[in-house]
Measured scan of single mutants.
Amino acid sequence: TYTWNTKEEAKQAFKELLKEKRVPSNASWEQAMKMIINDPRYSALAKLSEKKQAFNAYKVQTE
């Protein structure tokens, strides 16, 4: 089980997950979700809006 003390740690864990699963920077949210949804870190960020925000930040960083 994973635990995160801060929102920032949770966001980092979520981005690490995207990186580890090699989600391409041109992937849509739907494509990315299919690649990461079974990992416990997918739940790091509770709100869908937070997940999408972190995903978009990840995409910008990896382009």
Score class of each variant (00 low, 15 high):
Thr1Cys: 15
Tyr2His: 15
Tyr2Asp: 13
Tyr2Cys: 15
Asn5Leu: 13
Thr6Ser: 07
Thr6Leu: 05
Lys7Thr: 09
Lys7Val: 11
Lys7Ala: 10
Glu9Asn: 05
Glu9Lys: 03
Glu9Asp: 07
Ala10Asp: 03
Ala10Trp: 02
Ala10Ile: 03
Ala10Cys: 08
Ala10Lys: 07
Ala10Leu: 04
Gln12Thr: 12
Gln12Ser: 10
Gln12Ala: 12
Phe14Arg: 00
Phe14Glu: 00
Lys15Tyr: 15
Lys15His: 15
Lys15Ile: 15
Lys15Cys: 15
Lys15Arg: 14
Glu16Asn: 10
Glu16His: 07
Leu17Gly: 00
Leu17Ala: 09
Leu17His: 00
Leu17Tyr: 01
Leu17Asp: 00
Leu18His: 00
Leu18Phe: 04
Leu18Pro: 00
Lys19Asn: 10
Lys19Arg: 12
Glu20Leu: 04
Lys21Val: 06
Lys21Met: 10
Arg22Gly: 12
Arg22Ala: 09
Arg22Pro: 02
Arg22Glu: 12
Val23Tyr: 01
Ser25Gly: 12
Ser25Leu: 14
Asn26Thr: 12
Asn26His: 09
Ala27Phe: 11
Ala27Glu: 03
Ala27Asp: 02
Ser28His: 08
Ser28Ala: 06
Trp29Lys: 00
Trp29Phe: 10
Trp29Arg: 00
Glu30Asn: 11
Glu30Gln: 10
Gln31Met: 09
Gln31Lys: 07
Ala32Tyr: 02
Ala32Asp: 00
Ala32His: 00
Met33Trp: 05
Met33Lys: 14
Met33Asn: 06
Met33Ile: 08
Met33Arg: 14
Met33Ala: 08
Lys34Glu: 12
Lys34Pro: 11
Met35Trp: 05
Met35Phe: 06
Ile36Gly: 01
Ile36Asn: 00
Ile37Ser: 11
Ile37Tyr: 12
Asn38His: 12
Asn38Leu: 10
Asp39Thr: 00
Asp39Ala: 01
Asp39Tyr: 01
Pro40Val: 11
Pro40Ile: 11
Arg41Pro: 00
Tyr42Gly: 02
Ser43Leu: 15
Ser43Phe: 14
Ser43Gln: 14
Ser43Trp: 14
Ser43Tyr: 14
Ala44Gln: 03
Ala44Glu: 03
Leu45Gln: 01
Leu45Lys: 00
Leu45Trp: 01
Ala46Ile: 08
Lys47Val: 10
Leu48Tyr: 06
Leu48Ile: 11
Leu48Val: 10
Leu48Cys: 10
Ser49Gly: 08
Ser49Arg: 13
Glu50Ser: 05
Lys52Arg: 10
Lys52Ala: 03
Lys52His: 07
Lys52Thr: 05
Gln53Glu: 14
Ala54Thr: 08
Ala54Phe: 05
Phe55Gln: 02
Asn56Ile: 13
Asn56Met: 12
Ala57Val: 09
Ala57Glu: 15
Ala57Arg: 10
Ala57Cys: 14
Tyr58Leu: 03
Lys59Cys: 11
Lys59His: 04
Lys59Asn: 04
Val60Gly: 08
Val60Tyr: 10
Thr62Arg: 07
Glu63Ala: 13
Glu63Arg: 10
